[in-house]
Nucleic acid binder design. Sequence first.
DNA 1: GTCTATATCGTGATAGAC
DNA 2: GTCTATCACGATATAGAC
Lengths: 203, 203
Amino acid sequence: MVKDHTTEAKIKDAARNIFISKGFNGCTSREIAKEAGMNVALVNYYFKSKGHLFDIVVSSVMKEFTLSMIDIFKSNIPLINKTRIFIDKEYEFLSKHPEIPNFIITELGKKDKSFFELLDINNEIKEAKIFEQIEESQKIGEMRKIDIVSIMLLMMSNCHFPFIAKPMVQMINSLKDDEYEKQLVIHKQYVTEMIIGYLFPTK
Amino acid sequence: MVKDHTTEAKIKDAARNIFISKGFNGCTSREIAKEAGMNVALVNYYFKSKGHLFDIVVSSVMKEFTLSMIDIFKSNIPLINKTRIFIDKEYEFLSKHPEIPNFIITELGKKDKSFFELLDINNEIKEAKIFEQIEESQKIGEMRKIDIVSIMLLMMSNCHFPFIAKPMVQMINSLKDDEYEKQLVIHKQYVTEMIIGYLFPTK
DNA sequence: GTCTATATCGTGATAGAC
DNA sequence: GTCTATCACGATATAGAC
């Protein structure tokens, strides 16, 4: 996404856009080259092969995606506020990059799944001390006692699905793009209210 | 899914399985023919082209998918029970066909989106009188006053996402397949509790 | 209906001129 | 570095034998 004007960066940006919206098998090397304003040969000159270029894009996108998620965990604020802000930031990020979750899920289902080792997201999360914060909040009776995986599933389900399933939901309800955008703004409020109310019943 | 032994049915079943798991561009006609135990020529003899066969499979899958969703709406039971049963049935259906939502969403993003006209799901839903039931429940103060699209989004988010994002969630939490299955059973309880609690605050 | 053989085209990748 | 031209391969689709 960086606006660098080197040839290499132009190719990578074009590849990113096309891979995300069409997937690896849904596009051709020539298409990427054309989007970048050049020839196929240059793509292979800089990135050796389509597959190699794809791997680079996937790593880059996944890094951006996971970092955007755990970024809020690092801040030193109360858990209940973190929860609100997390939902807020997720909707903000996904409004800008609505195709990324689908891209990651789809391509993750095929590949050899060794990307996450490379990204050491686990270390990043542990560093954020979010687990301790949840445990403490549950101990003092502020947060409902639910395992961490289910908490993550609840949060991600209600943040990501509205973006992932946009074409399906739009079609079922005959909604235009701008109507669906407005719906999302409303929906975020409901989601926040529901999740906070469920995870923190005393508030 | 019908176990018919005609050649045509064998091809359609094979195509269904492969298209759902790999997508249109992720497989070849030969692969489908081989899975069906025959030659490429026969596939085109019965279905004219790969694209035509794909359209037939998509229509069939979407019909099955939408009917499974609105089936529960037709029954003549109280709304709160319908809500519980809907979640139950969705998890049951998705456990059997975990790849279908992703398939529909992905392929829906590309195509010309005229499938739903063909399926007249709208008529089916209206026939089920679910809208009137929701309106009535909201009027008597039983159900929280939320628009129908957001209600649908809440339900689908929490039912579908855990299946759609399985590879991602599994990877982040280093869960094996059987561990994730157990997680889903637990999660369904939380989801039911949370949604019922939010949509029907007085209960 | 079912097969083998083949026509036609598009794709990934590279060689080689500039 | 950047281009044109080309190779090698695999894909869809079909013709034609049985």
